[in-house]
Nucleic acid binder design. Structure first.
Lengths: 257, 257
DNA sequence: AGAAGTAGGACGTGGGACGTCCTATGACTT
DNA sequence: AAGTCATAGGACGTCCCACGTCCTACTTCT
């Protein structure tokens, strides 16, 4: 029916105390860590866990559900529960919700997402500019070429482009996070009805990044990335969802002398 | 008893198919989004949800548990379920697990954490250097002064220092992420038995950042942050847990010409 | 030996019961 | 009349048990 018939309000009093369920969750994690179970290793049965920990299967299941939501365990119906990889996919739900629930106004919901991506990718690209495999350039060029052709593949190429650079730097966490941000941005943008990108402009910005990488100039690379994000911001601003918040003017010439 | 008595292996075949439970989770999220329930708003009763969605309370509870793990809802025993803030605290479990389970070897488990923090804070500090409240400097100086005195408060001051800068930039997500990384790094470091920081050196590095902010030089600020992280890395390397992976030499002079 | 059938294990879902915790209401006291 | 205390009801927490579904591994048949 209605949300709630009682007089409850948004009062934030009395934070939730540590629950029994949380304790179970912790015990399960400790079990994984103590036994050094690698990703993919089979976990004890729900019934075993229930007996070992001394709670009902129901409680175990709820704890497992929480762990599953974080990607810490992976459950396969009829087969068993396994140690998960805790990959960034688990955070998609979290970040997507956060993105579309925060900021009651339409303005600037995606800004934060884009900013963090820009910060990470700027630094990452600078580092890659200093040191990378020679083959990387060719791979990036191929992506840019695909971007020039309109269609759904252009977006895929865009993602691959950024992922290639992030992967090159060798920091898994950074790579996964930028991928996550890309996916969530795309999802939120689509939901709010953002504008389609113009293929030529997008390809041009990416080409500039490749050129900077070829030259090996870290500052130029950072500059190119900033300009790429300026482009994205401009696109977003023109979208149906009212533009960004303009908390601070976007800086494009940061690392360029 | 043992982890599992059957012959299961690490086989990664057959990814888990979409579950009914996941569907329920999605419906609950949609309910929040559709009704535009703000953070802190009361959710329908578990029983109501069960009737509305047409499943048992058990299933609802499991879905809620998953949402709770992500901070999307907050449950208060005996009172009700409320819309959560999806704050970064929810990710602590995830990131901590990820940090201590990845990389079977001792070397370089914390590296990724530190690198991402460095990337975000470098960019953030650069921006703050260009534009910030005058009062910020005094607040930062106070933190540095507290850092000079040994004791548990030094660590608190350290965290506050970084949080002040991140908050100044105005990007909530970036701020929360760096805070999260700081907390997880600290927790993981403590667990592995890292070395204690030397108060004078730490304060000195932070002072350098403040000086750069005062001068308003973005490049100098970035440089100071890089040097600060070089210091942290050096400290970590000397710790009991075997040092980092050295995937790529740390770059300290990136934005400095 | 290879393929189909089968038994058992493990997770998924449902329903009910009872305990615990919290709040709001009303009675009582001052 | 105002404040305090007791109480009733609502809502979440935990548990038990049953049955369905899914998957694997073993057995059996060809």
């Amino acid at each position: 029916m209605a949300t709630c018939q009682c007089k409850k309000d948004i009062r934030e009093t009395r934070v939730a105390r540590p629950q029994r369920s949380e304790e179970i969750t912790k015990q399960i994690i400790d079990l994984i860590v103590d036994r050094q179970l690698p990703t993919g290793a089979p976990m004890p049965t729900e019934l075993s866990l229930a007996e070992d920990i001394g709670v009902s299967r129901n409680s175990i299941r709820e704890a497992v559900k929480a762990l599953q939501a974080l990607g810490i365990v992976e459950v396969r119906h009829g087969y068993g529960t396994f140690v998960g990889s805790a990959g960034s996919e688990a955070l998609q739900t979290w970040l997507l919700f956060r993105t579309r629930s925060r900021g009651s106004t339409d303005a600037g919901r995606l800004r934060d997402l884009l900013e963090v991506r820009e910060m990470i990718e700027t630094e990452l690209t600078s580092r890659v500019a200093r040191d990378h495999r020679p083959e990387l350039i060719g791979e990036l060029q191929a992506c840019v070429a695909r971007m020039r052709r309109k269609g759904p593949d252009a977006a895929v190429a865009d993602r691959e482009f950024h992922d290639l650079i992030c992967a090159e730097a060798g920091f898994d966490l950074a790579r996964e996070l930028t991928g996550l941000f890309w996916d969530v941005y795309r999802a939120a943008e689509g939901e709010m009805g953002g504008p389609v990108s113009s293929a030529p402009a997008t390809a041009k910005r990416h080409q500039a990044i490749v050129d900077a990488l070829v030259s090996g100039d870290a500052a130029a690379a950072a500059h190119a990335v900033h300009r790429h994000f300026d482009e994205v911001r401009k696109r977003a601003k023109a979208g149906r969802y009212g533009g960004f918040g303009e908390a601070r003017p976007a800086v494009s010439g940061s690392a360029a002398s």
